[in-house]
């Protein structure tokens, strides 16, 4: 038996070990109900509840932005992001927040927004009529 085979087998073993432990780093997209149940850090996917309050007042706290998200189950919940309000936040079609459920709100440490792409936009911008 060649030495190299031992090394290859060892590496494969480590690879299997890694991929089995890596499952811990993974999660499915949760709902707020799941997040409350597990108490762990999860990702929640949903849409911005545009009818509810968005609050960001940097004069009071530049690291506090709160808004409401409707999750996949249709439940609306308050989300607090410990950072500034992201640009073009209102335009987002879909929001993925990573964080934990706390007493009063879902505290997000990371946020990813999907904004409508300009390529899909079927509108054509037309020059504004120039005044003579």
């Amino acid at each position: 038996m060649k030495k190299i085979y031992f090394i290859a087998i060892a590496m494969i073993a480590v690879a299997i070990l890694i991929f089995s432990t890596a499952a811990e780093d993974m999660s499915t997209y949760s709902t707020f109900a799941d997040a409350a149940r597990s108490g762990k850090k999860v990702k929640v996917v949903g849409q911005l509840a545009k009818d509810k309050e968005m609050y960001y007042n940097p004069e009071k706290d530049p690291n506090y932005f709160s808004f409401y998200v409707n999750d996949a189950a249709g439940v609306s919940h308050k989300v607090v992001l410990l950072a500034e309000k992201p640009q073009d936040f209102e335009l987002s079609e879909q929001i993925v927040v990573t964080g934990k459920m706390k007493k009063e709100a879902f505290v997000a440490t990371d946020i990813l927004m999907k904004c409508p792409s300009k390529y899909k936009d079927e509108e054509i911008s037309i020059k504004k009529e120039q005044k003579g």
């Binding site: 890596a22 780093d25 993974m26 999660s27 499915t28 997209y29 850090k41 999860v42 990702k43 990573t98």
Partner: peptide
């Protein structure tokens, strides 16, 4: 099937 995601890519 429910898709899986890496919760926090950087530490992973």
């Amino acid at each position: 099937f429910e898709g899986r995601v890496i919760t926090e890519p950087e530490p992973h």
